[in-house]
Amino acid sequence: MATKKFMYLNRRSSFGTVYAIESLEVVLIAAAFEQDVSLAFMDDGVYQIVEGQNSDGIGMKNFSKTFHALGDYDINKLYVSKESLEERGLTESDLMPLVYEDEDDDWAEKPSIKIVTNDELTAIMSEQDVCLSF
């Protein structure tokens, strides 16, 4: 099967609507297709990967833990909008430390999250074959 570049655009926070969790469900399935997958977190989507989410009080599953599994699924390109973080008073240290093991570098643990400016994101988006919005 041909390899295409798939980007998942995540612009909403975790629990208010179903989009965040059902986006993650697609991403996990997509991993089996060995495509070039990247995730973009923009606008309130950056809240999907902030550290310290606890959904016990709202009776919903805390799927933020699942982001830690993405590295094992070989999904390691998570682009986070610098401007979106700044607008919300957040920094990289507010995000979960998501990592993957680099097969080509003796399984060294490396960060999956990359903070990108709008211009960098524009360049990344321009390369995509398929953009799925959630």
Binding site: R11, M42, D43, E83, N118, L121, T122, A123, M125, S126
Partner: peptide
């Protein structure tokens, strides 16, 4: 949505 689109349009 439009603002974010404009921020990343080439």
């Amino acid at each position: 949505s439009l603002q974010t689109c404009l921020n990343t349009i080439d």
